[in-house]
């Protein structure tokens, strides 16, 4: 049966189908976390290129978290919105935070040789990208990759 769409207030809602929380504390967690993301991406039938983009983005974000905040928590969720399935990753740390998020999202900020944040590049790899940061409290980065996006 077709999925029901009701009045606008109820449409385009993101439904969480499954959740998995992975603590990130050591460098070894990077590859472990990547494998976990791959599992979920494969499960929803994401294509190889989109999978690679998502996992690479995840890898960058986990590294940032380790580098700047000594780790944190990563949440993997399988979500669906309307007819589209996807993976949502949420990275939460209690690090120093980013003073100028807008600047950090500009190409050329702390990238290249210094293995910087690389946030703009990471953003290009995913369908949706959101970052919230409070100096002294921490940073939350949320990315979504739709199965066909």
């Amino acid at each position: 049966m077709e999925k029901r769409t009701t009045a606008t207030t109820r449409t385009s809602l993101v439904t969480v189908l499954s959740k998995d929380k992975v603590p990130i504390a050591r460098e070894q967690d990077v590859v472990l976390f990547r494998n976990r993301v791959k599992e979920y991406a494969t499960k929803i039938g994401m294509g190889i290129v989109n999978q690679t983009k998502l996992i690479t983005a995840a890898s960058e974000l986990v590294r940032n978290m380790l580098r700047y905040a000594n780790g944190g928590d990563a949440l993997i969720e399988v979500i669906s919105k309307g007819r589209e399935n996807g993976i949502r990753l949420t990275f939460t740390d209690e690090g120093p935070g980013i003073a100028d998020v807008q600047k950090a999202m500009k190409d050329g900020f702390s990238t290249g040789k210094s293995l910087g944040l690389g946030l703009p590049g990471t953003k290009r790899l995913v369908s949706e990208f959101d970052i919230k940061s409070v100096v002294g409290q921490g940073t939350v980065v949320t990315v979504i990759k739709w199965k066909n996006g």
């Binding site: 690679t52 690479t56 960058e60 590049g121 990471t122 790899l125």
Partner: peptide, 14 residues
Amino acid sequence: MQPAVAITLIELGL
């Protein structure tokens, strides 16, 4: 290099 890796590196700007 795998095609998916090449595409991703270009998108990442690397």
